[in-house]
Design a protein around this nucleic acid. Structure first.
Lengths: 144, 144
DNA sequence: CGGGTATCATTGGTATACAAATGATCTGGC
DNA sequence: GCCAGATCATTTGTATACCAATGATACCCG
C-alpha cells in the first residue's frame, strides 16, 4: 500500500523549498543577531539602509522599498524612532504624508551597519564555496 | 569621498542573502496561500505533516521536529486543534507531557496537502530551469 | 471646479517567532 | 531513595507580517 501518494515519490517536507527557506532564514537570523551592532533586527536594519539611500522618504514608500506592509513599516519606524535612529515630519506639500529621515545618530550608525551586513552575509554563506555562493545568490535572485 | 565604505564595493542591500531570503519567503507565502487547501499557513502545514510522520508525538518534540520554539508550537497546535485537525492527550507515563495526534479529519487532509505541497514547490521554483532547481535546492540544504 | 478614484497613515485582528521565567515532573547518579 | 539537573508545557513580552477597514487628503478628468 502506498497511502500517501499516487506516485512512487514519498512526500518529503525536508525537500520542500518553503520549509528550507524557513530554516535558512532561521539560521541567518541567529548569525544576524550575533554580529549586528546596536541590537537591530534584520527588518530594522533594512529599513535604516533604505532611509539612508533615500535621504528623505514617505513612510508608505519606505515600506514598499523595504518590502513591508504599511502596518509592518509603521511598527518598524515607531521602534526606530524610539531608538532615536530616525525622525519623522509631516510633509508640508502633502498633508497625508509623513516623511522619514535619519537622525545624526542613525546616520553615524550606517557605515558600521554596512560592515556588519557584509560579515553577516559572509558568515551565512560560509558553508558554500565562493563559486557556490555566487551561484546560490544568482539563483535566489531569479526566484524573486 | 567614499563615505559608505573603506573598500571599493558599495553596500547593496539587494545583494545580501538575508534580504533575498526574506523576499523569496514572501513570494513563496503568496503562492502557498493561493494553492493550499483548507486555508492552512505554512507553519500549520509543516506541523501537520510532522504529526502524520510521527503518529503520536509530544508537543515540545513536535516543535523541535518542525523547527519551532516551544511558545510558537503551542500557538500552532492550539489553532490546529481549533480547526479539529489534531487532538491532544496527557501522556499517562509522563505527567509533564501532552501527546499530539491527528484527528480523522486531519488524517484525511494529509494526502491532499502533500499534493498541494508538491505543486507549491513546483510553482515557487518555476523561474528556474530543472537543472537550476536541483542546484538551488542542494545549495539551500547545504546552507542549513 | 467638482466628483470619483487613488494614495496615505492608522487601527484592529490574526499568525508566526523567539527569549526568558515559572512550576511541575522526571531521571541519573550516588 | 534522594536530590541536582534536565525536560515539559505555559505564560509574558517584544517584533515581524499581512489583511481589511477607515478617515483624511490629493489628483485627474470631464
Amino acid at each position: 500500500m502506498l497511502p500517501e501518494s499516487d506516485t512512487d515519490d514519498a512526500y518529503q517536507l525536508d525537500a520542500q523549498v518553503g520549509y528550507l527557506l524557513r530554516l535558512a532564514s532561521q539560521r541567518h537570523a541567529v548569525i544576524f543577531q550575533k554580529l549586528v551592532t546596536a541590537g537591530l533586527t534584520p527588518t530594522q536594519f533594512s529599513t535604516l539602509i533604505r532611509v539612508w539611500e533615500q535621504g528623505a522618504v514617505s513612510q508608505n514608500r519606505l515600506g514598499r522599498l523595504a518590502a513591508m506592509d504599511v502596518a509592518t513599516i509603521k511598527g518598524v519606524v515607531d521602534r526606530l524612532r524610539k531608538k532615536e535612529l530616525v525622525r519623522s515630519e509631516p510633509d508640508p506639500n502633502d498633508k497625508r504624508r509623513t516623511t522619514i529621515f535619519l537622525t545624526d545618530k542613525g546616520n553615524a550608525l550606517v557605515s558600521t551597519l554596512m560592515q556588519d551586513g557584509k560579515r553577516i552575509t559572509e558568515e551565512t554563506l560560509k558553508p558554500l564555496s565562493p563559486a557556490e555562493q555566487k551561484t546560490f545568490l544568482s539563483l535566489l535572485e531569479k526566484l524573486i
